[in-house]
């Protein structure tokens, strides 16, 4: 059965994929629908949804909530992807070295990993952003730093399981170097779990970014969903729409990514599914 067929067997995953595609399209075409800066004071402050030309209302300064959501999608997706790619990169290096070589190298690298894992990730992210100046770079760095240990442990497990298999031993006999074996033989065989974990990590990254922005630790010069919620939360009782719509955007996006991750898991590890 092909990958797509297996993926499509999971209806929820298809729905997730559809929603995610919409979010990505929104991020890509935010500039076309809302060519103005989302921070621009577009009109009457605190206009309810559907009035004064605001689809989803305006916030306390008269900024368009809908425009903020569209442009915020770009920030969320971008931060989610960049942080995930960086975390996977670091995690794979740590996990591969530690799983492949074992022994002292394994001990040393895993102790470092555990050190990062023992600190609650969101608190750690707050700390890192507070120490560095809140900016898009520092947020990506913080999310990466708190996310990579999970990948490292996963990759280490896969490498431990694969390194004694016949095809790896055959490579040794043929005289291939360690790095070549790791990159060309073992790594391709554990790509599927990495993809699954990575897809779920994008969702976590988006949540962390929103949380940081909500607490006022976002980049003040970049529109994001967390910023919108943070800026609107003081007036939740008098202007519910300011933080409700960005909240729904986060909910739907994170849910969609989780569904897609679930579907990828089913499609890439069919044996797991059959065992259930």
């Amino acid at each position: 059965m092909s990958f797509w067929k297996r993926f499509a067997r999971n209806r929820q995953a298809v729905l997730g994929m559809f929603i995610l595609a919409l979010v990505i399209l929104m991020a890509l075409f935010a500039g076309a629908f809302y060519p103005d800066d989302p921070f621009r004071l577009a009109g009457k402050p605190l206009a309810p949804p559907g009035t004064s030309g605001f689809l989803l209302g305006s916030d306390s300064l008269g900024r368009d909530v809908a425009s903020g959501i569209a442009h915020g999608a770009k920030t969320s997706i971008m931060i989610g992807l960049v942080a995930t790619v960086a975390a996977v990169f670091i995690g794979v290096i740590f996990g591969a070295l530690s799983g492949y070589y074992g022994g002292k190298i394994d001990d040393a690298l895993m102790r470092v990993t555990e050190m990062f894992q023992t600190i609650p990730s969101f608190v750690f992210a707050i700390l890192l952003v507070a120490i560095m100046k809140p900016s898009i770079e520092s947020i990506v760095i913080a999310i990466t730093v708190v996310s990579w240990p999970g990948v490292a442990r996963l990759v280490r497990g896969e490498f431990l399981a694969l390194k004694n298999r016949e095809f790896v031993q055959a490579c040794h006999t043929l005289g291939m170097g360690d790095i070549q074996i790791m990159l060309r033989e073992i790594l391709p065989n554990c790509v599927s779990p990495i993809i699954v974990v990575g897809s779920l990590m994008v969702a976590t990254a988006i949540l962390i970014e929103s949380g940081l922005a909500f607490l006022g630790l976002g980049d003040p010069n970049i529109m994001s969903w967390g910023f919108q919620i943070g800026a609107g939360r003081t007036m939740l009782r008098s202007a519910w729409w300011v933080c409700t719509f960005p909240g729904i955007a986060i909910l739907v996006t994170v849910l969609a990514i989780n569904l897609v991750g679930e579907g990828l898991n089913d499609a890439l590890n069919p044996r797991l599914r059959e065992r259930q």
């Binding site: 921070f39 003040p220 800026a231």
Partner: peptide
């Protein structure tokens, strides 16, 4: 506080 952040955002615009 928040009010000053909003003021900063206004000034930026």
């Amino acid at each position: 506080g928040e009010d000053w952040r909003r003021a900063g955002e206004y000034l930026k615009q």
